[in-house]
Amino acid sequence: MAHEHKLAIFRGSLKFKSNVQKIWGVFILLSIVTIVEVALGIVKPEFLTDTKFLAMKLLNWIFIILTLVKAYYITWDFMHMRDEKSSLRRSVIWTAVFLICYLVLILLIEGDYIYEVYRSNYIKFNF
């Protein structure tokens, strides 16, 4: 495994000649994604902040999806997950992804519930 790298990204549609080239390619991709994120964060287009999808602003969905894209390429190409055996990949990724999703879901629902309790309560919190 030490000398063999899978050199194609985007499901094989973009092939690199060497591993070093692939690294620079991924770096350019990560830079573009970051620049897009920062630009959106500064401009904050109104149609993205006003539209909501599943109780969250469209802009925030875009940020989260772009973050996951970046995380994918860091893990797959910088940490060489692409070259590992699928059993190793799954034991690392699936475990982490499942536990994190579960934890986030539970804590966010609970946080929102407490917010409702504070808001519809007879006790005043804003003084």
């Binding site: 994190i100 934890l103 804590l107 609970e110 407490i114 917010y115 504070y118």
Partner: peptide, 22 residues
Amino acid sequence: VSDALTFSGFLASYGFSRFKFI
């Protein structure tokens, strides 16, 4: 993996507090 879970614990509790005082 375990360190990622530690960090996601922190970030999830950040989200919890943020939703609490949204």
